[in-house]
Design a protein around this nucleic acid. Structure first.
Lengths: 145, 145
DNA sequence: TGGTATTAGTTGAAAATGTAACTAACAAGT
DNA sequence: ACTTGTTAGTTACATTTTCAACTAATACCA
């Protein structure tokens, strides 16, 4: 502190957290109020909507989310009739997950909302900064794994 | 989805959350194992270490953190003998918070660790990207308020 | 076949968070 | 003095998250 005064408002983990919280709030309000979903629930919904059939483990890997979170999100989405599960016949440990038509409708609705929301965020940045931002974030996410 | 396939891995709230989680993990391991601290606790510690005397409300505003979180973090830090409180004589609703010498020692240690950690993160990015990243994040944080 | 290890997914208890209601102190107008 | 309103901070309760233990199915190998 006497040497080099640490700059908290420049510290990346701090900035990332604040930005994530601020930016997440707006979209959260939508999926929460409209479908009673939690964060992990919309993530699962989106992964299934985008990639079709997946197992809980696939989603867990792709979304870098712990399997217990996924497990409960899947249970919640099943309860809402947004997805169906089927045990794989080849390996009965695996459950193949798939959106129902209600789930797909929710996905379509929310992904449109998300696109619009993203556009608003990007509009706040300098024109050529958005792509650099995404590149940096992707980089930080992937290098650490 | 048939129209424009939504790109989840380009969606800013999603990227921000993943990046925040990934980048936070490493530093979290330090303050947690070394001092048994929670996220809000190190934030309060840092604000006091950097700005000297503050009230819980000051920290709450600056760190954009809800007052109940701050209240609990302050209580935890007091229990660890990292800070002291004093009721203001002018307005007895206010509590003036100040680090103890043990608190300052923890702050010095952790801020050095944080600097090193930040440097490692920056090293993963393209040379001129780090400052743009910080600018974007600051922008996203402040514009929304 | 039997034994050990691994993997997919679930569950329960403890810890953390969010929300709203609360206490205590002050301010301002009457 | 006496309401009414506001502010600082705490507490209580419900919701979420985390962590570790668990079940069930499969794989590997002797």
């Amino acid at each position: 502190m006497t040497d080099k005064p640490f700059a908290l408002e420049q510290f990346l983990p701090y900035l990332l957290n604040l930005a994530a919280e601020e930016c997440g709030r707006g979209f959260q309000a939508v999926y929460k109020s409209r479908y009673g979903m939690l964060r992990t629930e919309w993530r699962v919904l989106f992964h299934l909507g985008l990639h079709g059939e997946m197992t809980a483990r696939d989603i867990s890997m792709r979304a870098r989310t712990h399997k217990t979170k996924i497990s409960r999100a899947v249970a919640a989405l099943e309860l809402k009739r947004f997805l169906k599960r089927d045990r794989s016949t080849r390996d009965r440990r695996h459950e193949v997950l798939r959106l129902t038509s209600a789930g797909e409708a929710a996905f379509d609705d929310l992904s449109a909302t998300a696109s619009a929301f993203d556009a608003k965020l990007v509009a706040r940045l300098a024109p050529d900064h958005a792509s650099i931002l995404r590149e940096c974030l992707t980089n930080l996410i992937e290098t650490s794994a």
